[in-house]
């Protein structure tokens, strides 16, 4: 990764890397992990070895400054091993927040993700706050569309402050 030099990227950006396991006859998979590796600590992503090597990219590095390393868990012939670590700094990307009135039918199935009005007692109504990437959008029929929608490991976390001003 970056020739072993420190990496500085924005969250969500892809970064290329290669992992080589010797001997090349090693099979199985390698995982990118935040260093130092700890038993039970989940990896960032896992990749299958091809002839003992992986050369690809990932946009899944979480935000923050830390080091990453590769961990080979071994196979039936070869034992596991750890790579060298590479310092990375992943800066926060721009987020987009959405707040909408979501309405449902009496069975709780959403009828709109972006209603502007509703009638009390007709199904259920609730306020929903979605946070996505800069290109995210909300559809009335399907809800939020964001590159992170299907990648929970990179979804926004943290808190939202909701303020309501009664205009009645």
């Amino acid at each position: 990764m970056n020739g072993g030099a420190a990496v500085n990227i924005t969250h969500g950006s892809a970064v290329s890397f290669s992992i080589n396991v010797t001997p090349s006859a090693a099979t199985g998979a390698v995982a990118l992990m935040v260093a130092p590796a700890m038993p039970g600590k989940p990896g960032i992503a896992a990749f299958p070895l091809t002839s003992g090597a992986v050369a690809t990219s990932t946009a899944l590095l979480p935000g923050g400054s830390y080091s990453i390393l590769a961990h080979y868990s071994g196979d039936s012939i070869y034992g596991g091993s750890y790579s060298n670590s590479v310092p990375v700094t992943v800066s926060p990307e721009t987020s987009t927040a959405f707040v909408n009135l979501v309405t449902t039918n009496v069975n709780g199935v959403p009828t709109s993700y972006s209603a502007s009005s509703a009638t009390y007692g007709v199904g259920y109504q609730f306020l929903r706050v979605d946070v996505g990437d800069v290109n995210a959008s909300v559809s009335a029929s399907t809800g939020i569309s964001s590159q992170y929608f299907s990648r929970k490991e990179s979804c926004p976390t943290g808190k939202v402050v909701l303020s309501t001003r009664d205009l009645s």
Partner: peptide, 22 residues
């Protein structure tokens, strides 16, 4: 109502906010 949601951000995402009327 006028509803404002303010996302405080985390290590991966910057803060953002949205407002809607309902």
């Amino acid at each position: 109502y006028s509803i404002t949601a303010t996302y405080l951000g985390d290590a991966s995402f910057g803060a953002s906010a949205a407002t809607t009327a309902l």
